[in-house]
Amino acid sequence: SIAKAIIDLAVHGKAQNRSYERLAVFADTIGPRLSGSKNLDAAIKYMFSALQEDRLENVHLEPVKVPHWERGEEFAVMLEPRNHSIAILGLGSSIATPPEGITAEVLVVTSFDELHRRAQEAKGKIVVYNQPFITYSETVQYRSRGAVEAAKVGAVASLIRSVASFSIHSPHTGWQNYQPGVPQIPTACISVEDAEMMSRMSLQGTKVVVYLKMGAKTYPDSSSFNTVAEIVGSKYPEQIVLVSGHLDSWDVGQGAMDDGGGAFISWEALSLVKDLGLRPKRTLRLVLWTGEEQGGIGAEQYYQLHKKNISNFDVVMESDEGTFRPMGLAFTGTDEARDIVKEIMTLLLPINITDIYDTADGTDIDYWMRDGVPGASLRDDISKYFWFHHSHGDTMTVQDPNQMNLCAAVWTVVSYVIADMKEMLPR
């Protein structure tokens, strides 16, 4: 009973808590791992040697180029109606303010629609977006496009309510996108509390003036690597089951949840298979992506390099939505393939995690799923994920060893069985 053996080893056996403990040493040793930073270089070196020490096969680094942006010194202060220090985190790829900073009245809006309705009020102002958190995918548009929409109506900077479902004065960062032909203005996220306070003041008719200083700087692209390790298949070694997470993180907290958890349960899958002396028919390949937070940069270059072998990619799996209590597997593929994966999920009955959900989510595996390769992502209880996402709160304190054990069990049973079945998944 291979599935049971994997579950027992991961949840109750000698591998219990290993993925959590490995992640804790890694996160405490390396810290946050922003694309282009020395910490990320150190993280890749660390993993290159750790995967070799774990006696995995074909451990190697695949060179890629990644963006290199640094936030520098930044702060914001409300000057009117009273002095108040605003909690900010500059957004990735933002430009700096002029050396003397920017002092301007704010225009607070709760949506792009309101901004467009009040466009004539925006000239020379700092636009503050106080958009409510709906869902990440919907609300992240304000982080991504807030500066461009504000610049289009003549604003001099944008401050965006953090894309977070809960806050204790914690700003959340992330990447943002300028648009060719639209002036570039400095942009940062602010805490939910500060966005709401300035909104209330404005609605009272109070004039709000803010001073913003940002030292952000974009450098030439940096060299980085996707980190790869394998258990080579016994019968069809050229066919691949890819399990992955991303090794880079934002320059806040420890990047333990995003995406240390996903990276380390993916490593755990290969370790568990190796510990049990198993060798599936197909190659089980671990990829730890670089440059994910800047838009799946490392993954795109990996895809370009390997797409010629796309017919040999059986399934691509990424865990990048937390490793809290697992609920099942999100899957993208044909109905026939879904039925097979549904059957595989029944093997997880001993831990009662057998559900399958629509559409796998994973920036780094999207390139393959778009070309018809079946894809899977770990579905977990993300009710608290956006409390900590891209914030200083993303630390090991957020992670739970038992939940990671269960996530690793799900991840390993699914990837091993697909790698060992007589036929590849239909596509």
């Binding site: 026939e336 097979i340 059957e343 069985v417 060992d420 079945m421």
Partner: peptide, 24 residues
């Protein structure tokens, strides 16, 4: 029906279910 790579007929879903059950 074409032969699959190890010379057998492609499996029915029932066959696949049985194969997967072998892992439990």
């Amino acid at each position: 029906k074409s032969l699959s790579r190890d010379g057998n007929y492609p499996k029915t879903f029932e066959d696949i279910k049985k194969e997967i059950a072998g892992y439990s």
